[in-house]
Write a protein that binds this DNA or RNA. Structure first.
Length: 308
DNA sequence: GGTAGACCTGGACGC
DNA sequence: GCGTCCAGGTCTACC
């Protein structure tokens, strides 16, 4: 029998709602089971890969239970606990402030956005989501896990791969060199998660730094920013333009709409990404049902925003 | 500062 | 089964 971790969440934490709040819950190595409302997730710990099953059997506000397939040392348990808390945004201190500036989400409690156990995985996932439709992003992440590590490639593992191998075996296309370069920057300490996550560092400084990274343009930088828990900017892509036209009723050229969207979400200040995102998520759920019911291999893999 | 075109993959469609 | 077209951000060259 393996280790069993009991992780205390904030009182309003709702496992199914808060896991199924951002598309990354559908990307390997995350495996959401809509029937049992559990998530299977392998993590890197000191002695190798450990597979966890996460759930919240007691319901909202009760402990999240992480059952591991093997016995972990004390330090490994502590490491795994920190990774799980990061994924589930359990330490988000801005929930109340968000609900104050945008009261629409207070009743349902939406505020947390699911993310990865490491910033590096969030960076790579973001690059795999650029200039492709969602099914291709799903494929790239599956193949990265199948080819390099079942718990997602670490910076060291990815930095040692040849770009051509990534292209041939993981289907990442022209992103091959950029992914390897990102991994090498990470290994050399030139991407420093502690600095990027330091609340004392202004969002604008982080944004400018991210823009300088390979494969990271304005959309990707905005998205990584929100994955860092910094919601003061939008991540504008074609889906934003569609949302602006259909939901906000904006018209004009894409450039005009982009400017109008920026102006529209100004009212939500430091939380504008969340306000935008949950409007979008509501739209998806209206089309496909609650996100926690999405079957990852069918509904979750077939999403193509332009066809919604 | 703005714009055009290349970069890849996978799905849709027509034949 | 094959060929063609299209969606999707980033990057570079150029004006």
């Amino acid at each position: 029998m393996g280790s069993r971790l009991s992780i205390s969440p904030p009182p309003d934490f709702d496992f199914a709602r808060d896991v199924c709040s951002y598309g990354y819950f559908l990307l390997m190595p995350n495996e959401w089971d809509p029937t049992t409302q559990r998530m299977r997730r392998p993590l890197h710990v000191e002695s190798g890969v450990a597979v966890f099953t996460l759930s919240q059997p007691g319901g909202r506000g009760k402990p999240v239970i992480a059952s591991c397939d093997r016995t972990l040392s004390r330090s490994e348990q502590s490491d795994a606990r920190a990774q799980i808390r990061r994924m589930l945004q359990m330490d988000d201190t801005g929930v109340g402030a968000f609900h104050k500036v945008d009261r629409r989400w207070k009743k349902g409690g939406r505020a947390r956005l699911f993310r990865s156990p490491t910033l590096f995985e969030d960076l790579i996932k973001t690059v795999t989501s650029c200039n492709v439709t969602w099914p291709s992003t799903v494929n790239m992440n599956r193949r990265l896990c199948e080819t390099i590590s079942p718990a997602f490639p670490t910076p060291a593992q990815l930095s040692r791969r040849k770009p051509q191998t990534l292209r041939a075996r993981c289907g990442v296309g022209y992103r091959d060199q950029r992914l390897v370069d990102l991994a090498r920057l990470h290994v050399r300490g030139e991407i420093d998660p502690a600095w990027l996550e330091d609340p004392g560092v202004p969002d604008d400084d982080v944004y400018k730094f991210l823009l300088g990274l390979p494969g990271i343009g304005p959309y990707a930088a905005g998205n990584v920013l929100q994955l860092l828990g910094r919601y003061s900017r939008l991540a504008i892509d074609t889906e934003t333009i569609r949302h602006a036209k259909t939901y906000l009723g904006l018209t004009g050229t894409d450039r005009q709409i982009t400017r109008a969207v920026e102006a529209h979400y100004e009212q939500f200040g430091a939380h504008k990404f969340r306000s935008y995102w949950f409007e979008l998520w509501d739209f998806y759920e209206a089309k496909r049902g609650p996100a926690w019911t999405w079957e990852p291999r069918t509904t979750g893999a077939s999403f193509t925003a332009s066809k919604l």
